[in-house]
Design a protein around this nucleic acid. Sequence first.
DNA 1: AAATAGTCCAACCGCCAGCTG
DNA 2: ACAGCTGGCGGTTGGACTATT
Length: 194
Amino acid sequence: MRKPCCDKEDMNKGSWSQQEDQKLIDYIKKHGEGHWRNIPKAAGLLRCGKSCRLRWINYLRPDLKRGNFGEDEEDLIIKLHALLGNRWSLIAGRLPGRTDNEVKNYWNSHLTKKLKSMGIDPNHHRLSHYLSPPRIHEFSQGTTSSAMKVQPSHQQMKSGGSGSNQVSDAGSCVDHDSSCKLLPDLNVDLAVNS
DNA sequence: AAATAGTCCAACCGCCAGCTG
DNA sequence: ACAGCTGGCGGTTGGACTATT
């Protein structure tokens, strides 16, 4: 049996207080990210290292954009999801200032509904037969988000392991499924940058 | 005004891969 | 080659907030 990542008993859980946030920010400003396991002790936090990492990445990082997603971003998420499936970290990596958690939440709360309302199955990015004609052009036209190039790094692409190999068959549809014509401008650039 | 339902999002959980000794 | 540790990821949950009845 695997040990828990930290001793849960003396740890705070739930929402972070302002003081906790400040301690974490101060520590990372001084020492940088990494060694998450040591951070709680070093920063004087009663939190698990994982929790610190998540808080920093999803909320405290200075380069976070936050706020509503723009149409370009929506458009790009839909395209990338069609291409990559639920690999939120990869998708978020193409959206500057956005986190995987944010993208995932936005997908689950907004975009699945939006696609369904268009008559598209959000899991497979195919027409749903039970709904009225789709309005695909709403996101496949006009938005020129292609300015944001889709270029996953090697580091990101390697994560095709068992946990993440459940790329929706929308990914395979890129290769040979004619239904992908639903996403005509899906030819996002996946070349490796740098 | 109160109760209920629905929505959103921060945070947790468990699993996996890579690294190190 | 193996085991243990760590960081990272995606799925899920819980609670706060808002809308509806």
